[in-house]
Amino acid sequence: MKFVWRNEIIEAVLENGELHLSRDGRERETFEARIDGDRVITPAGRFRFAVAPTRDGVWVTAEGVTAFLEYPKPTAAAGAANDEIRSPMTGNVVSVNVAPGDAVKEGDLLAVVSAMKMEFRIESPRDGEVESVSCAVDQLVDLGAILVRLKDRS
């Protein structure tokens, strides 16, 4: 199975008491590992583990690490992610600090979203120009909702 982990694609195959692990462009590594009920057994010990697959990936916990491993997706057009500034969480827009046509520098404050009584500053990931603003003060925004679109400076 292939997973995305910290921006790397990792392939993990478990067969015949062995784990084969291949990371992007690196040599395949092999470890002793097997599953026994809700435990995974390696030379390091016996560890409780659990998995919960979803449509886009799988939640995994074992030996102190809990993570969501996304399944690899066909890559979207490069740069698109940098142009759509999305809300990092579900929350309330506290301030919108830019307007369409504004020139912004990397690190400039675009908006402030608050959730669970804390404020988060949404900063520009790059230099550019604000193409559009799709949120307003006091609006409730979902996780992943587009707040601001950027384009190259005209």
Partner: peptide, 23 residues
Amino acid sequence: LLEPSAAFWAAAASSRGAKQRKS
């Protein structure tokens, strides 16, 4: 940050074919 171990990746690999949970 804790680094995932062989046990973690073995667990991940074991999820092949596991039933998707209704969320």
